[in-house]
Simulated scan of single mutants.
Amino acid sequence: MKRFLIDLPTLPEEGKQFSGELPPDIFDLPKDDAQPTGPLFYDLYAQRFGSELLLTGTLSTPFQFTCVRTLHPFVQTIRVENAAIAIEIEDSSQIDATEALREEVLIHFPSDPRCDDADEPQQCEIDPRYLAVDKPGDDAVETPPRAEGDDRWAALDALKNTDSER
């Protein structure tokens, strides 16, 4: 897998510009979570300050999210325009900044992804048939029957009965 490596002995004192892309598999997210639909693009300036390496610039990656309102998939590009990443320099002569770039993109995920924020915005409305408020009685949406033998509440019912006997 391709990594973003910076060779410290060859890094000029005044810093250096780095541009490129990293493969989407660096994100390694669970299958039921958002998934990258393209590579992580970076355009960063790296400069050493004492025992830290500072990376500043832009990052972007397109991701497929699921809308919290409509449950439809959509693609939204996560852009970090003014990224500033500090990496502690240890005794190694080479820094692998891949994980730091990955984390910087992930912390900019939307907490409640909505399809009207997509790269190609979609109408983000809940089907009114599924709203509980002011739901008409003849909406043609069937209420699923309870499973036979569903005793998940039986333990709580038993507690309620023992309290009333006291």
Rank of each mutant, 00 (worst) to 15 (best):
R129I: 10
L59T: 01
R114Y: 00
F49G: 07
P128I: 01
K135H: 08
E81F: 02
S92Q: 15
P73Y: 03
P121E: 02
L106C: 09
Y130L: 09
I89P: 01
C67D: 05
E148V: 01
Q47N: 15
I87Y: 12
E99D: 15
T61V: 09
Y130W: 11
F74T: 04
E120W: 03
Q94C: 13
P144I: 00
D96K: 12
Q76W: 02
Q94L: 13
R48M: 15
F109S: 05
R48A: 15
T98P: 01
A86P: 06
A140K: 07
I78T: 06
A100L: 10
Q47S: 15
D116N: 14
E88T: 14
C115L: 06
I85C: 13
T58L: 08
Q64I: 10
E125T: 12
I95F: 02
G137M: 09
T77L: 05
C115K: 03
D96V: 13
P62T: 11
E125K: 07
L131V: 08
T61R: 05
C124Y: 06
I85V: 15
G57Y: 03
R79S: 05
D138S: 05
T98N: 05
D127F: 00
V133F: 12
D91T: 14
S111E: 11
L53D: 13
T56H: 06
F74Y: 11
V105G: 03
R114C: 02
I107W: 08
H108D: 14
V68W: 00
V68Q: 09
Q94V: 15
E104R: 06
E104S: 12
R129H: 11
T56I: 11
I85M: 11
V105R: 02
L71A: 14
V80K: 02
T58M: 11
I126F: 13
E52N: 15
L131P: 00
A132V: 13
T61K: 04
L71D: 08
T56G: 09
D134Y: 07
P62L: 12
Q76S: 13
A84P: 06
V141I: 09
A140Y: 01
R69V: 14
E104Q: 12
C115T: 04
L101H: 07
A100G: 06
T56Q: 14
E90A: 11
L131G: 10
D134E: 14
T70W: 00
I78E: 01
D96A: 12
D112W: 04
L131I: 05
A118V: 05
C115F: 04
L71Q: 11
A97D: 07
F49D: 15
A86V: 10
E120P: 04
F74I: 05
F65R: 01
L106G: 10
